[in-house]
Simulated assay, not measured.
Amino acid sequence: MNYFELHIGDYAEATQHLSILEDGVYTRLLRKYYASEKPLPAEIEKVQRLIVAKSKDEKAAVEAVLSEFFVLRDDGWHQDRCDDEIARYRAGEPERIAKKANEEARTERHRRERADLFSKLTAAGQHAAWNIGIRELRSLVDALPATGTATPVTAPRTFEVAGAVTAPATPVTATQTPDTNPHFPLPTTQNKEDTPHTPQGGRRARKASDDSTECVPGFDAFYAAYPRKVGRRAAVKAWTKLAPDEALQATILGALAAQKPHLDRRESGRYIPHPATWLNAGQWDDEIPGGKPAPVNAAGQVWWQIAGFGHVAEAQNDRCHIGNYHEFRDGKRIAQGVLA
Rank of each mutant, 00 (worst) to 15 (best):
I97H: 10
G308A: 03
N297I: 11
I306Y: 05
F309W: 07
W303R: 08
T27I: 15
D264H: 10
K229Q: 13
A307F: 13
E5C: 01
W278S: 11
A12M: 12
V338C: 06
P41S: 02
A294Q: 12
E43G: 05
Q305N: 05
T240Y: 04
R31I: 14
V338T: 13
N191M: 07
P152I: 02
A167C: 04
L6S: 12
W278G: 08
P289H: 06
V141H: 05
R329Q: 15
L66M: 04
D10K: 08
V338E: 15
F4Y: 15
P196M: 06
R109W: 03
G323M: 00
M1P: 03
A61D: 06
K100Q: 15
T213D: 15
R333H: 02
A257C: 10
A12F: 04
Y89G: 04
L29D: 01
R270Y: 09
S139F: 04
P244R: 05
Q16H: 14
Q249N: 10
R319F: 02
H127D: 08
T170A: 03
G300R: 05
Y34S: 00
P244F: 06
V25K: 01
D286K: 03
R114M: 10
K32Y: 05
I252K: 01
L137H: 08
A128G: 02
E43R: 12
T213C: 06
H17E: 13
K56R: 15
E13G: 07
A257Q: 05
A128V: 15
R232T: 04
G133T: 15
T15P: 07
Q336D: 14
P289D: 10
Y89S: 09
A247T: 13
G290V: 05
P289Q: 13
Y33L: 08
Q316P: 00
I8Y: 06
Q259M: 03
A164P: 00
D83C: 02
H78K: 03
T198G: 04
E5H: 13
E214R: 10
H326I: 07
H183D: 09
R81L: 14
A91W: 06
I334K: 06
P39H: 08
D318K: 11
E68I: 11
A224C: 05
A225C: 11
L137W: 01
A155R: 06
P185R: 12
T15N: 13
Q190S: 08
F184C: 03
P275S: 02
G148M: 02
V47E: 00
Y3L: 02
A53N: 03
R135P: 01
F118T: 00
A281T: 13
D264E: 14
L18H: 12
V52L: 11
Y34W: 11
N297L: 12
K99W: 08
P152G: 05
Q316K: 06
A313K: 10
I44P: 01
P199A: 14
T213Q: 13
T122C: 00
F70D: 03
I322N: 07
P227R: 05
K59Y: 00
T149I: 03
G218C: 07
N317P: 00
H110Q: 06
F184E: 02
S212W: 12
A101Y: 12
T175V: 07
R73P: 03
A169F: 00
A235H: 02
W77H: 07
Y33G: 01
E58A: 14
K99S: 15
S139E: 15
A208F: 06
P199S: 13
E5V: 10
K59N: 09
V216D: 13
H17A: 12
K54A: 10
L72E: 12
T240E: 14
Y26L: 15
D74E: 14
R106I: 09
